[in-house]
Design a protein around this nucleic acid. Structure first.
Lengths: 362, 362
DNA sequence: CTATACTTCTGAATCGTTACAGAAAAAACG
DNA sequence: CGTTTTTTCTGTAACGATTCAGAAGTATAG
């Protein structure tokens, strides 16, 4: 045997290769791996020995999954190109929460790539369920995921019947931010958002009026804008007069660029509501660069309370939400769903105003 | 019993349910989904219509995977508990690089959870290949992954024959850091590392001498320590006299704690070599807190050049490596492997000394 | 009108397991 | 020593698709 010429059998080694080599039934080999109590220890060892000798890589997980009707992984759908997920601090905290619960349940976390024209990746993802996180409701990937009819949890998405949703009280948060600024005496507001209008539809880089568009946008964006609007109008400020600058992307550089334009606006705003902390941190930097004092001349409020918010100079007044908890709740809900239980179909997480040094009385 | 009406059979809807409903062959239904050119447009539409009417979720991906012998996803194995991966800036850049290449190839990224005693998650992961990143070589998860005999790429791991490896020239980087400090005239060195000794084996929290252990540790840890040692010995400094503080974890708090102990050491070190930027940033903060001036009284060098390194005060002198490129290369190599090509079996990425403000002449 | 070439559709084999009912062998029992 | 129980092992039917050779039917050509 040792001197045999390698016939280089390109044939695949499966459970039945091993069974044949030993002259036992395939079910015996299967049992050797999965039910040690179903065969004698002696035979089991022989099976395992022959298996390694033949280079058998162990039971094929795909075949096992087919038979057992479970994939052992959960798919996460996310609005952005995959790599972006690893760059945004808020997103990362959410993913961390999701990962924590999944790990405890022994489930893998599959990040599904999304070229939005092509839904095959979603259709073919080997998962037991989905967490759909902050996608445009109209995104074909969302439709594709729902069509799979797998246990699914929506996170930062417009709720749908029959699908558990976890959302944050973004609207209340935005109200709190606005009321805070109003209470400081501000009357001239401006807003920095991102991707209010899809990039390819965007008319120009100038601030746009929110009324000019009712295109699809992100759910949380809608909620936050609505939360800004209400107290402003209650304070007698014309919503249509509030300039809104729509960035291409959620990052500091875009926030810095936005503030330049808004500071040139007449009347010059004294209070800036930013839809995210990253935009707000960029706005602070941009304003300072342009020679403005924050908060003496300009108050800026963010949203999310990412770790960097407390590090900046001045530190950022913002709305705190528990990102990690958001992920934990989503993961938990999905795990319950997978276990055949029915989790609360709608969870709303609270937010909190964190007053720091980027806001001051006018 | 009398009025026991049959509730609609909760029977699963498969391709053959649809075929039966239409009175066509299953292969026809399959073709309707996968080979539109193989049947008339009219029939195809009828198939699809009936399918949605029956609530058919589309071809089962697991069955398809079994037949087609591909999972459409790549597994990433990482040393830490899953959630940690989302917290470490350096790791995130690597993951971003990996995700970028995988997305382009339309592959999913499966984060495999690792309870180290239990390898079933690795054995059962539905993937076409693995990227093994910065794991202890002795970790059973690594063994389990290799046993799968899938295309695999090693990243920051000791190279193995027949498995493409991508590593960073950590040793050279550590040498550069050390030589930089030596050239500034430093003679009293100390080192801050983490997890040199497994947590449960750790004797105490006091600095330990590296000679006292030859336990398994991380590959890059070994390389970096070796890189520190060589120039020190060349400069006539007794390696055994260099205190090494071994933290429980790679984070700022542990770095800050470590520096307190080291500053109490006699003779007091003037130059601190940190195995990571996070430890170094913690060390700077800790030293300042204890009333020491960095770099006037104490020079500190990090490793990795994470984004935060340039933001700290003083900014951190460190060794830069291209984390994103590391991920890109690993992803690329794996994709080539999956395509049946054979990528270069060994890639070593260069590093670079970045001198900032945390180091000065003694 | 026959021969040839397309279209359109079908049937059976295959992917690699696990689950389950039951056969064979061994052990325990009265 | 026959009978029952327990331990081991086996054979086969799912699991849900895709693939591919070829059957029927239809159009094109000669």
């Amino acid at each position: 045997m040792a001197h045999d010429h390698e016939p280089a059998k390109p044939h695949r080694i499966t459970i039945s290769t091993v069974a044949a080599a030993l002259g036992v039934a395939v079910s015996t080999v299967s049992n050797a791996y999965n039910r040690p109590d179903q065969l004698s220890a002696e035979l089991r060892e022989r099976v395992l020995a022959v298996a390694t000798e033949l280079g058998y890589p162990g039971p094929n997980p795909v075949a096992r999954s087919l038979r057992q009707q479970r994939a052992g992984a959960v798919g996460v759908l996310f609005a952005e190109r995959l790599p972006y997920a690893f760059r945004d601090p808020a997103v990362l905290m959410v993913l961390e929460g999701i990962a924590t619960t999944l790990e405890q349940a022994g489930l893998g976390l599959l990040l599904v790539p999304g070229r939005d024209d092509d839904t095959t990746t979603v259709q073919q993802a080997l998962v037991d369920g989905f967490i759909v996180y902050s996608m445009m409701e109209t995104d074909p990937l969302v439709q594709a995921a729902l069509k799979r009819r797998l246990p699914t949890v929506l996170l930062d998405q417009p709720p749908r019947p029959d699908v558990p949703s976890i959302i944050v009280d973004d609207e209340a948060g935005a109200r709190m931010a606005t009321e805070h600024l109003l209470s400081l005496g501000h009357r001239q507001f401006a807003i920095i958002t991102d991707r209010l209008v899809e990039t390819n539809l965007r008319p120009s880089s100038a601030p746009i009026n929110v009324h000019d568009q009712s295109k699809p946008t992100f759910f949380v964006t809608q909620l936050r804008l609505q939360g800004y609007r209400q107290p402003l109008e209650a304070a007698g400020i014309d919503w249509r007069s509030v300039p809104i600058y729509d960035c291409n992307d959620n990052n500091e550089a875009d926030g810095a660029a936005a503030i330049q334009i808004l500071l040139a606006h007449n009347p010059r705003p004294t209070a800036i509501l930013c839809l995210t902390d990253r935009l707000a941190l960029g706005a602070i930097a941009g304003a300072q660069q342009a020679g403005y004092q924050v908060p003496q001349q300009l108050s800026i409020v963010g949203f999310d309370d990412i770790p960097q918010a407390s590090q900046s100079v001045p530190s950022l007044t913002t709305i705190r939400q528990d990102h990690r908890q958001k992920g934990l709740s989503a993961g938990q809900a999905l795990i319950e769903l997978l276990a055949g239980q029915s989790p609360t179909s709608y969870q709303r997480l609270a937010v909190e105003l964190v007053v720091r040094d980027s806001t001051a009385a006018i």
